[in-house]
């Protein structure tokens, strides 16, 4: 009886994950469409042609594509780290010290989601423009001597956009993890003579590591596929992420096979990173327990 409860989940997974994934493979290894361009999906695996993967891997290891992957990785790593730096204190405060304002604060964290992501990014375009508020404020407080051109292919602008766009996703699982920690455990540490800092590092932080892990994975995955942040806040090839190249290939028609192959390569790339990451975190938490 119990295993049958998993049926809806399994169905969901097959219909909405495995089938589309198979379709991506079929397009990546499909035959060229003689009329409409792009690739006709090859549904029969015997007809699969891996030529597109050869091209992509060639560009990855000998061409410029490798740098785009590296850039994407660096952006995502920095943005995730910054999100954690910003998100952890917020989640900590809301979970442990916000008192009766908890619900209100949580609402406020989610509030940006009521506005469309594109709208929020377009708002940043205005804020960051040469005579926008960001420059005006920085000039006023004396941090800048002259207006800074934020929107002309600056790495920091794209990373800022990523952090801004995804940080709430990180706060929520962190909040849940921190909220679950039994406060008596921390009180016990303090009773036994630990300083507040020691209690935090020896008790709270390890106990919230699962939340950190979940939060990081949740923000990293969409960041790897993100294409519109860099498109809107920069538009320069200097700051393009892999997602942008995929978008371009797929939207323009002729490149749908190429775009699908690139999607698979990105998936494998992220998959390897995530496996390593999950493995090392799991090992760290095992060691912390023992």
């Amino acid at each position: 009886m119990w295993p049958s409860l998993a049926l809806p989940g399994v169905l969901w997974l097959v219909l909405l994950f495995l089938t589309p994934l198979y379709a991506v493979f079929a397009v990546a290894m499909g035959a060229p469409d003689p009329i409409f361009g792009g690739a006709l999906p090859a549904w029969n695996p015997l007809a699969w042609d891996p030529g597109e993967f050869g091209t992509i891997l060639g560009e990855l290891f000998t061409g410029q594509l490798g740098f785009v992957f590296l850039r994407t990785l660096i952006y995502v790593a920095i943005a995730t780290f910054l999100s954690l730096l910003i998100g952890y204190p917020v989640a900590y405060y809301v979970a442990r010290h916000a008192g009766r304002f908890r619900v209100l604060l949580l609402m406020l964290i989610i509030a940006p989601f009521w506005i469309n992501y594109l709208m929020r990014m377009l708002a940043w375009v205005n804020l960051l423009s040469t005579d926008g508020y960001v420059n005006q404020i920085l000039l006023f407080v004396g941090l800048l001597d002259e207006p800074r051109e934020w929107l002309v292919g600056k790495h920091e602008t794209v990373i800022l956009g990523l952090v801004y766009g995804y940080v709430p996703f990180l706060i929520l699982p962190l909040f849940a993890a921190l909220d679950r920690i039994d406060s008596r455990v921390i009180e016990a540490a303090r009773d036994l003579g630990a300083s507040p800092a020691r209690a935090f590092f020896a008790v709270t932080l390890p106990l919230s590591s699962q939340g950190i892990l979940a939060g990081c994975v949740i923000v990293m995955l969409p960041m790897f596929g993100d294409y519109y942040t860099a498109t809107l806040l920069s538009g320069s090839p200097r700051t393009n992420m892999v997602g942008k190249l995929i978008e371009q290939d797929i939207l323009s028609g002729a490149g749908s096979g190429r775009g699908a192959a690139l999607t698979v390569v990105l998936m494998v790339f992220v998959g390897i990173l995530m496996t390593y990451y999950l493995y090392s975190v799991a090992r760290a938490s095992r060691e912390a327990r023992s």
Binding site: Q64, P237, N240, Q248
Partner: peptide
Amino acid sequence: QETWSRVQQGG
């Protein structure tokens, strides 16, 4: 398309 992709990779 391939040329364009190369342009978008920059460098």
